[in-house]
Amino acid sequence: MGPITATHYIGLSAILFAIGAVGVGIKRNPIVIFMCIELMLNAANLALVAMGKHLGSISGQMMAIFVMAVAAAEVAIGLGIIVSIFRSRETIDIDEVNLLKL
C-alpha cells in the first residue's frame, strides 16, 4: 500500500456516487431518495476537494463550499414539498405521487 494520492479519493468518490445512484433508482420513499442525492453531492464534493489539492488550487474547495450552500437550500425546499404533498395526499409513495398538481 503506497501513499494516498488523488486517484484514491477519486475512486472512493466514484464508488459513493454509484451507491447513491443505486439508491435513487430503487427506493420509493422520497426522503431516502433525497438522502441518496445528498450522498451523490457529497461524493462530488470529495472529488472536487481532491482535485483541488491535486492541482494545487483552492478553487476545488470553493466549489465544494458552494455545493454545500446549494444543497442546504435544496433540502429545505425539497422537504417542504414532501411535507406539503403528505398533507394533501396522506402518502408520499413516489409511485403514487406522479403529478405536481395538488
Partner: peptide, 29 residues
C-alpha cells in the same frame, strides 16, 4: 487533505443542520 474549513462546514452544515432536518421530517410524517 488540508481542507480544514470545508471539513468543519461539512460537520456543522451537513451532519448538523441538514441531517437534523431530515430526521425532523421523518418524525413529523
Amino acid at each position: 487533505q488540508g481542507a480544514e474549513f470545508v471539513g468543519a462546514v461539512q460537520l456543522i452544515v451537513y451532519a448538523g443542520a441538514i441531517m437534523v432536518l431530515f430526521l425532523f421530517v421523518i418524525m413529523l410524517l
